[in-house]
Computed example of a mutant assay.
Amino acid sequence: MEPVSLIVGAVLLGVGFLSGRLSRRTRAAAAPALPAPLCGCGHTLSQHDTETNTCYAELRRDTFDKRGRWSGHQWVPCTCRQYVGPRPIDEVFMPRLLPPSTD
């Protein structure tokens, strides 16, 4: 092969590589991911009871036998007592109307 075509091919390869690297960085910087609103226990508002604010999610814990050897996993309820994460804006200004309370 002639050296001119090798140089042209190398330049095209370099230009393609650099344009791919630069376009990936601008696309990632333009759209940052929104953080999920989480409670201190790591669960979302949908996993908390709206009236008592207690968490009804379950956590996976390791279990061990009497000799101290790992024996598997056990699902235990979350010990969170109140949702402390960000509140939806409609609950700040006006309490929920539905479902109606049975007094």
Rank of each mutant, 00 (worst) to 15 (best):
P32N: 02
L98R: 10
L59C: 12
P32D: 03
S101P: 06
K66S: 14
S101V: 12
V8W: 07
R87W: 14
T79M: 07
E58Q: 09
R81E: 11
A29C: 04
S101E: 10
G14W: 09
Y83A: 00
S19Q: 11
R96W: 05
P95F: 09
T52Q: 03
R96Y: 04
L18H: 00
V4H: 08
A31N: 09
I7H: 12
A29F: 07
V84N: 15
D90L: 06
A29H: 08
P99F: 03
E2T: 15
E58A: 05
L34S: 11
C39W: 02
L22W: 12
V76N: 08
R24P: 00
G9Y: 11
A10H: 13
P77A: 08
P86H: 03
I7T: 13
Q74F: 05
C41M: 03
E51Y: 09
L38F: 08
T50N: 06
R81P: 06
A33Q: 06
G85Q: 00
G20C: 12
T63F: 00
T26H: 11
A57T: 03
W75G: 01
I89E: 13
D90H: 12
V92Q: 10
P32C: 01
P100W: 00
R67T: 08
S46L: 04
T63S: 05
P100Q: 00
H43Q: 12
P99R: 01
T63N: 04
K66D: 15
R61H: 13
A57D: 14
T52F: 02
I89H: 09
C39R: 01
S5I: 09
G72R: 02
S101Y: 06
R96L: 09
V84A: 12
H73C: 04
Y83T: 01
G68V: 06
R81L: 09
